[in-house]
């Protein structure tokens, strides 16, 4: 009595189990695909929102304008004070003249801007923060520094992205939990149907002395295949969906500043997570189906 794992036999049996309930298997694969796609989509949105936040943390600056009465020397001296403010990563001094050059460079075609007097602008510091989420507190602290007249921050943008990321994370976790349970439940029922179909064969196997393990394996394989097929299909659908959305964002003028992470950088973890989750759903479903069934 050989103890080796009869891979070919279990695979064959699992496959024919799957085809004996074409429609149910189709439904089970479908729900797995839905689960993985929703999970994948929300996760990818969260990942992109995170990347954007990181970008903003890099690029988004607070501008702190220096009081007009300060001389350039006095203004420059504020730098060390500003850098002592909590959450400030760096403060870079920009003089009126430099600011004017930047401004002109932004509007090279506007004649009337070209010979403006730098005196109408103020000296300023470009401040970078360690953590973008603490921006409003940091702005308050910077305002309190003596010699800073005004602070200009892009709060809405940063706040907006933080919100998107948080909402995406919460929705993602909740949806994944629900869909996971639903998928396991549906796969479990599909496999219960097969065990019911095969009850005669199971009775005979048990009668002639097949081990519980041997009787169970084909159903575990069936669940595995449903989960794995679901994962493969969702992967390609996810890919297509991602490329379509990326294309849409790319060609949309108002969304130009959003940088989408190319799928080529993401496909390995996406494939890994999909395969893992699909297999978990499938095998989990089959184990829950046969747990009760094999108690005699």
């Amino acid at each position: 009595m050989a103890k080796r794992h009869d891979f070919r036999y279990f695979f064959h049996e699992g496959l024919s189990n799957m085809f004996s309930h074409g429609f149910m298997s189709f439904a089970a694969i479908g729900i797995t695909v839905a689960c993985l796609l929703i999970m994948g989509t929300f996760t990818l949105v969260a990942v992109n929102a995170n990347a954007l936040l990181a970008d903003l943390e890099q690029e988004n600056e607070i501008l702190a304008y220096v009081d007009d009465s300060y001389t350039e020397e006095q203004a420059k001296a504020l730098q060390s004070q500003l850098e002592k403010v909590p959450n400030v990563a760096s403060a870079t001094y920009i003089s009126k003249e430099e600011a004017m050059e930047d401004f002109k460079a932004q509007y090279p075609d506007e004649e009337m801007f070209q010979d403006l007097d730098p005196a109408i602008l103020r000296d300023r510091f470009a401040i970078r923060m360690v953590d973008l989420k603490l921006q409003s507190q940091t702005v308050e602290k910077v305002k309190e520094v003596e010699g800073i007249a005004e602070v200009n921050a892009f709060e809405e943008i940063a706040g907006g992205f933080v919100t998107v990321r948080n909402v995406a994370t919460v929705v993602c976790v909740a949806l994944i939990a629900i869909l996971f349970i639903v998928s396991v439940f549906i796969i479990s029922n599909t496999i219960k149907l097969t065990t019911f179909d095969r009850r005669e064969e199971i009775a005979i196997m048990r009668m002639v002395g097949a081990t519980n393990g041997f009787i169970r394996w084909p159903f575990v394989y069936e669940g595995f295949m449903i989960g794995f097929l679901g994962a493969v299909i969702s992967f390609f659908l996810q890919w297509a969906l991602y490329e379509a959305v990326a294309q849409g964002v790319d060609t949309n003028d108002t969304l130009q500043l959003i940088r989408i992470i190319p799928f080529s950088q993401l496909w390995v973890p996406v494939a890994g997570v999909f395969a893992g989750a699909g297999i978990l759903i499938g095998v989990g479903g089959s184990l829950s189906a046969i747990r009760k069934f094999l108690q005699v």
Binding site: M1, A2, Y9, E201, A203, I204, V208, G209, F214, I215
Partner: peptide, 29 residues
Amino acid sequence: LGVIFQDFRLIEKKTVYDNLAFVMRAVGA
């Protein structure tokens, strides 16, 4: 033990050969 019942209990969608192969396989032959 080898058990035989009044109602045969053969698997109808398997051939005679496969009915026998099935139970041999079930014990890892």
